[in-house]
């Protein structure tokens, strides 16, 4: 792709999200989301192979339907209540419709089925953009709708946590596993949204860090299948040691950053007298932990037969820029002791 076209697309991607962030009017927010969708489509198809085209098609249909439904909900709200303000979406029908449309945009459970297939067809870099940057604009909107009735959010969240764990169970494709892990994390965020919005932001922040570091590690060792993880030690031994920690952090094990949001969310749910839901969510995240553990097992504890020449590449310097990876990996692993500071930062 020509550099000029590429930079235009990247700038439009940023512009769309920035527009949605800055808007108070539903129409402007919708325009931002639409620009975002239209800008990523050429980025997805830049490797012109059947899988990429198919993934783009599926993404296009899901996103176009979701954004049309979003605008429909906004117009209906304008007809019913007379206002276009994002914060003013009070009518129960339109607020539910908006929630569902945004859930389809970010890929929450009953509307998630496009997400793993789209992820499977893309390159790791585009997949990274899809699962981090593309979530921000819809999330900004979903954060601003606060309905009186939290049941929709609880249902979406619990279903996402369960489906995200269950779906990734039998997968061997890394990108599908990443998509399911993204669904499960979004489920946690939505689950806590009606009760404590700052915790949602905190979960989103840690999710972005963890996903970024995991995707960049996989980009560095250039693997998309669970088999080829086991030879990554021959390429970059240090990374092989730290990726299991990133994976366990995604799974939410105690001394790592991933435990922080899960802990606070479970605490908050228990405070709201929702202990059964908290238990169900905690138990469902064990499924996710299972496939993270399987990835870490394949990566560190198996050693396939390898000849001495095959172990050479670790002596060479990697060609990528590894500074962002180093920063986010550190954040992913060591942030738990800073919990009070982070909480103070997000609860303002």
């Amino acid at each position: 792709m020509a550099p000029f076209v590429y930079s235009t697309l990247i700038i439009s991607l940023g512009l769309g999200t920035a527009m949605t962030f800055a808007s108070t009017h539903w129409y402007l927010a919708w325009m931002g989301i639409e620009i975002n969708t239209l800008a990523i489509i050429p980025l997805m198809t830049q490797n012109h192979n059947p899988r990429a085209i198919e993934a783009t098609t599926k993404y296009f249909f899901a996103q176009a339907t979701a954004s049309a439904t979003l605008l429909f909900a906004a117009v209906s709200n304008a007809f019913l209540t007379g206002g276009w303000d994002i914060l003013q979406i009070n009518h129960p029908l339109t607020s539910t419709l908006t929630t569902l449309a945004l859930a389809m945009k970010i890929g929450l459970a009953p509307l998630h089925s496009w997400m793993p297939e789209v992820m499977q067809g893309l390159s790791l870099l585009t997949g990274l953009i899809l699962s981090t940057w593309q979530k921000l604009a819809p999330f900004c909107l979903i954060y601003q709708i606060q309905p009186d009735n939290p049941n929709v959010f609880i249902t979406l969240g619990l279903l996402s946590v369960i489906v995200g764990g269950w779906g990734g169970f039998n997968q061997v494709q890394l990108r599908k596993i990443l998509a399911y892990s993204s669904i499960a994390h979004l489920g946690w965020m939505i689950l806590i949204l009606p009760f404590s919005p700052p915790l949602t932001l905190l979960t989103l922040f840690t999710y972005l860090m963890m996903t970024f570091s995991l995707f960049s590690s996989f980009m560095l060792v250039r693997t998309t299948h669970i088999n080829s993880l086991s030879i990554s030690w021959a390429k970059i031994p240090t990374l092989t040691a730290s990726v299991p920690l990133i994976l366990l952090s995604l799974g939410g094990l105690p001394p790592l950053t991933g435990f922080l949001p899960k802990w606070l969310i479970l605490q908050e749910l228990t405070k709201q007298d929702l202990a059964p839901i908290a238990t169900l969510a905690a138990l469902s995240s064990l499924f996710s932990l299972y496939f993270y553990l399987r990835l870490s097992y394949t990566m560190t504890l198996t050693m396939p037969p390898n000849n001495p020449a095959g172990t050479l590449p670790w002596r060479l310097n990697p060609q990528h820029n590894t500074l962002p990876l180093a920063l986010t990996t550190t954040t992913t692993i060591f942030l738990l002791p800073a919990t009070p500071t982070i909480l103070a930062l997000f609860t303002f």
Partner: peptide, 14 residues
Amino acid sequence: GAGLALLVATTRTH
């Protein structure tokens, strides 16, 4: 326009 472009691309690949 994007949808029709994808239609052409899908027809060529599938």
